[in-house]
């Protein structure tokens, strides 16, 4: 337990360091991008421009701006006001979008793990059968097709041709389902392949043969003895899987018109909404870091040989 606590503390330190690095990198990138958030169709009067710059902490030398922005963030937890969305603070935008993006990502991941592991186990146990070949071909297909193509086809199929899902919107379970499935499918395909490879390797081990020799049922052998060992590569893939789900959600939120963070993420960068993009990047960094930490911990729990450090 003490191990875990000190590990978490260490990870927290690393997260703060990462956040600081990301903050600095983003800050430098933003200030070196040509174009100003206040450049528009019409030229803004100098007096108004000065006020705008003062409000958004854009007056002063870059170093002063950096110090002030970092200070606000560290001491007040304040990310400032969005430069493009009027009367929205960055915290508000995140608070509105975060639950949506997070629930979409969680649904997609859970779906991907369940489907992927099931398919992988079945095709490993029935190696060479029609089910195995079929599912593994489907898995390669899932990896090879870009998710925006998949999502568009799914809309065409399940919304217009066979209307079983609503086209867009957010809130009910049925509305979450289709985007979550589209988001999770490529990840599920990858997990299925990892599980199959892992299972095949473990099924050839001596301890599995021993279990079979003891006369255990095939079901017990597969689920109790082989599966935990086969899941290690899957668990270590969950970190990258989260990253791919998060980037994938940028696309799916656009296609399904979901009011999550994804659309803000791209738009804020394209429109030079400096404060909002900073908020978005930091939020995504925290998400990724947290997920990586959880993966590391669960890895250590599943495989006692791995030490947390």
């Amino acid at each position: 337990m003490q191990d875990l606590a000190s590990y978490l503390l260490k990870r927290l330190g690393w997260m703060l360091l990462t956040l600081w690095a990301v903050f600095t990198l983003s800050f430098v990138l933003m200030r070196s991008v040509p174009g100003n958030p206040f450049d528009g169709e019409r030229a803004v009067a100098p007096a108004i421009r000065r006020q705008l710059e003062a409000r958004y902490n854009m007056d002063g030398t870059p170093l002063e701006q950096y110090r002030q922005a970092l200070g606000n963030l560290v001491f007040h937890g304040d990310l400032g006001w969005s430069m493009k969305l009027e009367d929205y603070s960055v915290a508000q935008v995140i608070a509105e979008g975060f639950p949506i993006s997070a629930s979409l990502a969680i649904f997609a991941l859970v779906f991907a793990v369940i489907l992927g592991v099931t398919a992988g186990v079945i095709s490993a146990v029935r190696r060479g059968s029609v089910a195995d070949v079929g599912m593994m071909s489907a898995a390669v297909l899932g990896i090879a097709i870009p998710n925006f193509v998949l999502a568009s086809l799914a809309i065409l199929l399940f919304v217009f041709l066979i209307p079983i899902f609503p086209a867009a919107g957010w809130g009910t379970f049925r509305q979450i389902l289709l985007p979550a499935i589209c988001l999770g499918l490529p990840v599920a395909a990858y997990i299925a392949r990892l599980t199959r490879t892992g299972m095949l390797e473990v099924l050839g081990r001596d301890y599995v043969r021993t279990a079979a020799a003891k006369g255990l049922s095939k079901r017990t052998i597969v689920l109790r003895h082989a599966l935990p060992g086969a899941l290690l590569p899957v668990v270590s893939y969950l970190g990258p899987a989260t990253a791919s789900v998060l980037t994938g959600s940028l696309v799916l939120e656009k296609i399904f018109a979901l009011p999550g963070m994804g659309s803000h993420f791209v738009n804020s960068a394209l429109q030079r909404d400096f404060t909002l993009s900073m908020g978005m990047v930091l939020t995504y960094t925290v998400l990724l870091f947290t997920m990586n930490t959880i993966v590391d911990i669960s890895y250590a729990i599943i495989d006692p040989r791995v030490k947390m450090q």
Partner: peptide
Amino acid sequence: VDLLYSIPFIFVVIFVLTFLEDDKT
């Protein structure tokens, strides 16, 4: 490398690409 793993790179890509879109650059 661990640290870089936690950076959402898509953001960096967007920024650098918009930076490159500028006529002067």
